[in-house]
Nucleic acid binder design. Structure first.
Length: 511
DNA sequence: AAAAAAT
C-alpha cells in the first residue's frame, strides 16, 4: 500500500519520502485512514513495524497551524522513548511547520517550560513530568484533540495507571484516543477501552506475536557460569550491535563492568543513572562508540536502533510481554536479528510461559566450550588481519619486521600476533541473586505441555538439553552466529587499542 | 519481585 493512497497531504508525503519510507506497513495502512477519520483506534502490531509513524502521521495531518494550543499529547513509558518519538514526529512535521516538544523527568524543567512557551502543537512526555507541568500550569491540555498512549499496555498497567488517569482528566472528553502496542493482554485492554469511544481495533494478524526476522534461541545454564558462557557466545557469534538485558539495576552494573574488564566496548543503562548519563550512553550506542548496551527493561520498549543485530537475555523475563519487547529491539524494519535467552534451572516455567505467548519455540543451544570460543576469536582475528594489512602503513614497521623474521620462526611471530589479538579471559564474578519465586499459578494445567527433553534430564552431558518433543531435527543446530548470514562484523566488539586488563577481578556483592 | 516514572 502506498502512502499516497491513505489520504495524507503533500507536505507529509514529502517528509515520508525524505525519510526513505517506500510503502506503508500493514499497521500504517489500516490505522492511518481510521485515525484520519477521527476514530479512536487500538492498534496492535509486531515490534519494528512502524507504529510510531502510524499515529504520528495522522496527528500531524490534523494539526491546525492557526491554533496556538497543544493539540496532541503522546504519553511514553520511558524518557528515551519520549525523546525518540518527539524527534520522529518533528522530522515528519518539519515540512508542514509543526512543532513537537518532549518533556520528561531528570532534566532541567525551566528549559522545558521555555520550550512549551514556544507553542508546540504536539507534546510527548513521561507521566510524572507531564503531571508536574500540568500542576505548574506550564502545560495546558484543554485543547487537546488527540491523546496517544504509546506502549499502551505498559501505560495502563499498575504503577502507571494512576498517573495516566490524572493526566487524562485534563484532556477534553471529546478527544480522539489512540492506543498502540505490540502486546495487549486482555485484562489491560479492558482497562484501556474505558478511556475510548467506539474503539476500532486493528490487530495485524500474524501467526506469531514476534517477528520471524528474529531467530530465537535459549541456553540452559547455571547461574555461576552464565557470564562466561555469554562471552563465549560473543566470541563465536561476533555480534556487532548488541543489547544485553538484565533483571535488576545492580546486575546491569555488574555485567557491564565485567564486559569492560574483558575488553568489550560495553556500557550499562538503567533508571538510577542521571539523565545526562543515560542520554550520553544512548548516543554512544547509536554512534557506534559502544558495541554492547547492558540494560534493564528501561530499554525494553520502543527504542529503535535498527542496526541492533543481537539481543541477549542475560536474565530471562518473568513477564512474557517484556520478552516480546526486548527481542523486538532487533529484527526491525525488515532486518534480521538473533535473540539468546539464558535459562537457569528454576526458570523453566518462564520459558514455557514466553513460548505460550509468542507461539514460537525457541531453539536450544549448547554452551560453547572454552576451546570453541577461542576458535571463534581466532576466526575473527584471522579475518581482521586481512583488513589490517590493507589499512596499516607498513613503512614504519618494515625494518623491525625484517629483524624479527631473521631472528625468529615466522610461525612463532604470527602466533604471538594472534595471541595478542585474542581476548584474555579475565575472571569475573557476578553475584548471585535471590532465585525467582516459584510460580505455582493456579489453573496452569491447561493444554500446553512443552514436553521438553523428556522428564529424565539428569546427566545429559554438558548441558545440551534440547531436542524437545516436537522438534524436527533441525533444532540440533548449534550456534546461530558466524554461519552464512553475517560477514560484516568488524572486530567482534573488541576494543581497538589492544590494551586489555589481565588482572583477576571480582565484582563484590554490596550486601 | 523488578522496573519504569517527579523532586
Amino acid at each position: 500500500m502506498k502512502f499516497r493512497e491513505l489520504g495524507l497531504s503533500e507536505d507529509l508525503l514529502k517528509a515520508i519520502e525524505d525519510k526513505g519510507f517506500k510503502e506503508a506497513t500493514p499497521i500504517q495502512a489500516e490505522t492511518i485512514p481510521l485515525t484520519l477519520q477521527g476514530k479512536d483506534v487500538l492498534g496492535q502490531a509486531q515490534t519494528g513495524t512502524g507504529k510510531t509513524a502510524a499515529f504520528a502521521l495522522p496527528i500531524i495531518e490534523h494539526v491546525d497551524l492557526d491554533n496556538p494550543n497543544v493539540q496532541a499529547l503522546v504519553i511514553s513509558p520511558t524518557r528515551e522513548l519520549a525523546i525518540q518519538t518527539q524527534s520522529e514526529i518533528s522530522r515528519f512535521g518539519k515540512e508542514k511547520g509543526v512543532k513537537a516538544v518532549s518533556v520528561f523527568g531528570g532534566s532541567d524543567i525551566r528549559r522545558q517550560i521555555q520550550s512549551l512557551k514556544r507553542r508546540p502543537q504536539i507534546v510527548v512526555g513521561t507521566p510524572g513530568r507531564l503531571l508536574d507541568h500540568i500542576n505548574r500550569k506550564t502545560l495546558k491540555l484543554d485543547h487537546v484533540k488527540t491523546l496517544v498512549l504509546d506502549e499502551a499496555d505498559d501505560m495502563l498497567d499498575m504503577g502507571f495507571l494512576d498517573d495516566i488517569e490524572s493526566i487524562i482528566k485534563q484532556v477534553p472528553e471529546d478527544r480522539q484516543t489512540l492506543l498502540f502496542s505490540a502486546t495487549m493482554p486482555a485484562q489491560i485492554k479492558r482497562v484501556g477501552v474505558q478511556f475510548m469511544k467506539d474503539p476500532q481495533q486493528v490487530t495485524i494478524k500474524a501467526k506469531e506475536l514476534t517477528t520471524d526476522l528474529v531467530d530465537q534461541y535459549y541456553i540452559r545454564v547455571k547461574q555461576f557460569e552464565k557470564f562466561d558462557i555469554m562471552t563465549r557466545f560473543f566470541d563465536i557469534q561476533a555480534p556487532k550491535v548488541t543489547i544485553v538485558f538484565c533483571r535488576t539495576k545492580r546486575r546491569v552494573d555488574e555485567v557491564s563492568k565485567g564486559l569492560l574488564l574483558r575488553g568489550y566496548r560495553a556500557a550499562g543503562i538503567h533508571g538510577d543513572l542521571t539523565q545526562n548519563r543515560r542520554s550520553q550512553i544512548m548516543k554512544d550506542f547509536k554512534n557506534d562508540k559502544i558495541d554492547v548496551l547492558v540494560a534493564t527493561d528501561v530499554a525494553a520498549r520502543g527504542i529503535d536502533i535498527s542496526s541492533v543485530t543481537h539481543v541477549y537475555n542475560y536474565d530471562i523475563t518473568q513477564d512474557s510481554e517484556s520478552y516480546v519487547h526486548r527481542i523486538g529491539r532487533t529484527g526491525r524494519a525488515g532486518r534480521h536479528g538473533v535473540s539468546m535467552t539464558f535459562v537457569e534451572p528454576n526458570e523453566t516455567s518462564y520459558l514455557r510461559d514466553i513460548e505460550k505467548l509468542t507461539k514460537v519455540r525457541m531453539l536450544p543451544l549448547k554452551p560453547p566450550s572454552a576451546d570453541e570460543a577461542l576458535k571463534g576469536q581466532l576466526e575473527v582475528a584471522t579475518k581482521e588481519i586481512g583488513s589490517l594489512i590493507e589499512k596499516t602503513k607498513m613503512d614504519a614497521f618494515a625494518d623491525s619486521a625484517e629483524e624479527l623474521l631473521a631472528q625468529y620462526d615466522a610461525k612463532d611471530l604470527v602466533s604471538v600476533l594472534l595471541s595478542k589479538m585474542t581476548r584474555n579471559q579475565v575472571k569475573v564474578h557476578i553475584s548471585a541473586e535471590k532465585p525467582l519465586p516459584n510460580k505455582n499459578k493456579r489453573g496452569h494445567g491447561g493444554g500446553y505441555r512443552g514436553n521438553r527433553g523428556g522428564g529424565n534430564h539428569r546427566r545429559n552431558g554438558g548441558g545440551y538439553r534440547g531436542n524437545r518433543g516436537g522438534g524436527n531435527g533441525n533444532n540440533r543446530r548449534r550456534y546461530s552466529g558466524n554461519g552464512n548470514h553475517r560477514d560484516d562484523h568488524k572486530n567482534g566488539g573488541r576494543s581497538s587499542n589492544g590494551k586489555r586488563p589481565n588482572k583477576s577481578f571480582t565484582i563484590k556483592n554490596k550486601d
